[in-house]
């Protein structure tokens, strides 16, 4: 077994509590980020589903001339964000209302004049359904003098996006705090190990071991802590997903690339924390 691996494993045996703390701290940091990932992923999926239904409805004044309406249709269809435009005439609007509201059918039949306005139903292309993009198109349509009102569900669209932003912010703050704790625990573990092995390190330097060789067991230890922490975080996230799915509501599991990324992030974090700590503490031996 190579020296670095042997010593890294020995460090786990010598200070099991610190090693376990390092792994747990990394796991919790990544678990919080994993939970955010799960939330963000499912919110994104929900938004995608809702966004497919995002539609702008522009109600037209009764005195709009056919020429004005035709020209407006051509101009709106030409907008890059617009996927399609359907012109609903007053007659079609009334027919739809009568079909959808059976209980008012007689009321509609007894009317002398059709009270419902004609409208444009505008659907948007994927990628142009964010609140900002929808608002831009809505304002453009609103600018026509014969357009009386434009509706597009601005409030709930904004709410969903706000929830996503808050979830991201909270996850970053809590995940960052756990990451800081993990870095401190790893640095402490390295410091204790360096101190416990200071004689050995002194002899290694005395006989001509390179800095890389002296550092290698510590880096390997950090890498292994990070790897275990990443795997544990992925397992905790999966457990949460299972519990949520069976007790509260159905959520979708994360794509496998995200899981691999979590484990890689843990490994890289463990390695980097060890590198910073070992360089600092070895200078003092």
């Amino acid at each position: 077994m190579p020296y670095a691996l042997r010593e890294a494993l020995a460090a786990f045996r010598r200070t099991p509590l610190l090693a376990a703390l390092s792994v747990i701290a990394i796991a919790f940091a990544l678990f919080v980020i994993g939970l955010f990932g799960l939330t963000a992923f499912n919110i994104r999926r929900a938004i995608e589903k809702v966004e497919e239904k995002v539609e702008i409805v522009a109600y037209l004044a009764d005195d709009a001339t056919p020429a004005q309406v035709e020209l407006a249709q051509q101009e709106v269809r030409a907008l890059p964000q617009v996927a399609s435009l359907r012109h609903v005439t007053k007659t079609e609007a009334l027919a739809t209302a009568m079909a959808e509201m059976e209980e008012f059918k007689e009321v509609f039949s007894d009317l002398d004049a059709n009270p419902l306005p004609a409208s444009f139903e505008v659907s948007l292309k994927a990628g142009s359904r964010s609140p900002e993009a929808v608002e831009r198109v809505a304002k453009r349509i609103q600018a026509y003098p014969f357009v009386e009102d434009v509706r597009y569900g601005r409030d709930w669209l904004n709410t969903i996006y706000t929830i996503r932003r808050i979830a991201a912010g909270v996850a970053m703050v809590i995940g960052g705090a756990f990451a800081l704790v993990a870095a401190i625990v790893i640095a402490t573990a390295v410091r204790i190990t360096v101190f416990a092995r200071r004689e050995e390190i002194g002899i290694m330097r005395l006989v001509g071991a390179t800095d890389g060789f002296v550092q290698s067991p510590f880096l390997l230890e950090g890498l292994m802590s990070g790897l275990l922490g990443g795997v544990l975080a992925a397992a905790l996230t999966w457990g949460t997903y299972r519990v949520l799915g069976s007790t509260m509501f159905q959520v979708e599991w994360l794509p496998s690339e995200w899981i691999v990324l979590t484990v890689i992030a843990g490994t890289a974090f463990g390695l980097l924390s060890s590198l910073v700590a070992v360089r600092r503490h070895l200078e003092q031996v």
Partner: peptide, 22 residues
């Protein structure tokens, strides 16, 4: 340079009063 030191140390053997054995 710092990275040359190990090469120098390999050309030197050092013995101390307090032995410095593990």
């Amino acid at each position: 340079r710092r990275r040359d030191i190990p090469q120098l140390r390999r050309k030197l053997g050092v013995v101390f009063q307090d032995f410095r054995l593990l």
